[in-house]
């Protein structure tokens, strides 16, 4: 058990971000009360190897019914580390996203774009001993939403991580470089610090690109560090 450094609130959005209308009635209005972190925050769930099945890391295959999913095949590599640069091994990473047409499998999504019978859009993987993860998927499409007139979400993939403790829990979204919708998106812009926002954008990587198969992107994820002496590197 170890304790974690306080959350760096400057790297995160405020609970009430007026441009993103749903925050107005759903974000807490009172500042969270700081408590001394202890056993409760320092511990957290770990997951059995069986939690990730053979095809769970490959969204181009794990929803196949009768053929290949449509769209641009990509491979996302990343390293999960803490703010001191320590790699985070054996961390469960859950992912979900829209299909290439910008449509979610979720029953509530009524966007007038086609479902893909061969793409569910959810999966998961573990980080390895060095904190590295990888999953294959289809580049998700943009889609409209009701926040304001002509509002469109940029292409994005949702990621959920437990990290080493309950306190390090993170749910985030990975965006794509060069997307013109980023500067118009109140969810992306909810994070007020421009340097922090940049950390939400994956980097295209020709080195990660698999010849004749899939474009490569790199998306590193940084969780809160532990109290104590930073690791020499």
């Amino acid at each position: 058990m170890s304790t974690f450094k306080p959350r760096d609130w400057g790297s995160h959005a405020p609970y009430i971000a007026p441009g993103y209308k749903s925050t107005l009635l759903r974000g807490p209005t009172k500042a969270p009360l700081a408590i001394k972190s202890g056993l409760t925050e320092g511990t957290g769930p770990r997951f059995a190897p069986a939690s990730v099945r053979e095809l769970d890391f490959d969204l181009t295959k794990n929803g196949v019914v009768n053929g290949e999913p449509l769209g641009e095949r990509i491979v996302v590599h990343g390293r999960v580390m803490d703010t001191d640069g320590r790699p985070q091994p054996n961390i469960l990473v859950e992912v979900w996203q829209a299909n290439a047409a910008g449509r979610y499998v979720h029953k509530v999504d009524q966007h007038d774009a086609p479902l893909d019978p061969n793409f569910r859009g959810s999966g998961r993987c573990f980080t390895d001993d060095q904190g590295n993860y990888k999953f294959y998927t289809i580049k998700p499409g943009a889609y409209p939403w009701g926040n304001h007139f002509n509002a469109w979400r940029p292409n994005h993939i949702h990621l959920s991580l437990f990290g080493p403790g309950f306190a390090t829990r993170l749910v985030t979204q990975m965006y794509f470089p060069g997307d013109p919708l980023l500067d118009l998106d109140p969810i992306f812009l909810g994070t007020e610090d421009a340097a922090a926002r940049e950390r939400l954008i994956a980097k295209f990587s020709i080195d990660r690109t698999e010849e004749g198969f899939a474009l490569g992107y790199q998306f590193d994820i940084v969780l809160r560090g532990r109290n104590g002496t930073p690791m020499e590197n």
């Binding site: 995160h12 703010t83 859950e94 979900w96 979610y104 509530v108 909810g190 926002r197 950390r199 994820i221």
Partner: peptide
């Protein structure tokens, strides 16, 4: 050494994941 990755909303469509 590194800044935290910002949190983003889970959104309305998390259920199938």
């Amino acid at each position: 050494a590194y800044g935290e990755t910002p949190s983003q909303t889970v959104g309305p469509y998390f259920a199938y994941g």
